[in-house]
Design a protein around this nucleic acid. Structure first.
Lengths: 234, 234
DNA sequence: TTGACGAAACTGGTATACCAGTGCGACAAT
DNA sequence: ATTGTCGCACTGGTATACCAGTTTCGTCAA
């Protein structure tokens, strides 16, 4: 599609690099979900979304089937589409999967980190500290997710990276479930990241893995403890 | 020649259990790929597939976009669809991901195995030995994949199970890459499974994980080296 | 013989129309 | 007033037609 679209009244806000409409629809709808604009239990409609995105049903339909396959929405034929929320069990399972993947990643990574990776980790850490100092919590959240993905990328395993990439959006969803972002969260997690990096640079596999597992454990605790408000859920 | 439009005999043909056409298309196309009927580098066409499956382009298109997202085909707009093969690096990455997931699974599982799980593992093992004794190699392959999925299911983590389920089809693809099934492969792997189960039943996390990692390492070696002769146990 | 050029025969991507279910509300019969 | 029923207004799912590229190949001119 040309960069200068287009007839429909709504050329979407974000300048997209999407190669196709259904790709754009996929990214946009998922963004609306993981940013909380479409909270859990929201009812969606292909036609509404198509109109909002300035395209026809077809690409929206394709995007939604993919999003359904990833578990973010539930589609009932002849009924409708509903945004799926995350149960506490989902969150626990989510963190356990991360323990398996990311614990493994840092364990392996400590033994094979090169100078390029060293620089990347130091840079990522510096960015996080800068964002925290500036109080830019949204950027803190983004950098947090990117830090974890960076570890997988440095390991160079595309399968693991792909698996963690799918987790990326779920992480946002998990964090958003507790409401707005808290500064204290990052005042704790950024130093935890720093500890992981320290052990990686020292080549200490066991210590790096332990630090990662503690970091994830702390993250899980930060989320589950805040989830004590009464929920009007069935 | 031009497609002179279809003479669709137009009964939905086989009475399928699929809830929708695109679901049926997804399962069928993926089956054709993972069974080797569509080997790597095969060129596909939405229209050809639609005619073969007795439906229109639309559900085929949706199914292919999902299969593309899973990495089994590559779609180039205005060009065509090609079945993606697995490079040696892909296979290495694949096994490394399994090491991360399944190593973690057995480590955790050894500590929390109940009587139901015990029975399920014993039963799974017996089935494998029976299939091997009968020389039913196709069933051996199926039971192999199911055994690994069973471990994840016993752990009770849906996220991990979903991640490993995606691997299920890739495993078949990996094995098919070396050609036909070899009896020796299962004469080795079934006892390896038995060893893993033994350590799980004994509650020995470390031994179970080690056995699993060795099992995966052996599987990787069997594929990459294509060796058919049994090797001495360490 | 050879080269370039253009029409045709494809490709996936998208829009539109239509279909078959579903739920709900209005209206009618009691 | 209650209740049963019909119908309309939705839903996602599918088929069809069309679009804009890309590739192929035959034709025609040099």
């Amino acid at each position: 599609m040309p960069a200068t679209l287009s007839p429909p009244p709504a050329p979407p806000a974000t300048a997209n690099g999407s190669s196709s409409l259904h790709q754009h629809a996929y990214e946009e709808i998922k963004r609306l979900i993981v940013t909380g604009e479409f909270p859990p239990d929201t009812f969606l409609s292909e036609r509404q979304l198509a109109q909002r995105l300035g395209m026809s049903k077809t690409p929206v339909h394709i995007a939604l089937k993919r999003i359904e396959a990833e578990g973010f929405v539930a589609i009932s034929p002849q009924q409708g589409i509903v945004v799926r929320g995350l149960s506490p069990d989902d969150i626990l399972d989510h963190y356990e999967l991360r323990e398996a993947l990311e614990g493994f990643v840092v364990r392996r990574l400590a033994a094979r980190l090169d100078s390029v990776g060293t620089d990347a980790l130091r840079h990522a850490l510096a960015s996080q500290e800068k964002a925290l100092a500036e109080g830019d919590l949204a950027r803190c959240l983004e950098l947090d997710a990117r830090f974890h993905l960076l570890l997988a990328r440095l390991l160079g395993n595309r399968q693991i990276l792909a698996a963690m990439d799918q987790l990326h959006d779920r992480i946002r969803l998990v964090i958003l479930r507790v409401g707005t972002l808290h500064r204290e969260r990052f005042e704790e997690s950024v130093p935890e990241h720093a500890a992981i990096v320290d052990h990686l640079l020292a080549g200490d596999s066991a210590a790096a893995e332990t630090a990662m597992l503690e970091h994830l454990e702390a993250g899980k605790r930060r989320i589950l403890l805040r989830r004590t408000e009464p929920h009007p859920e069935p």
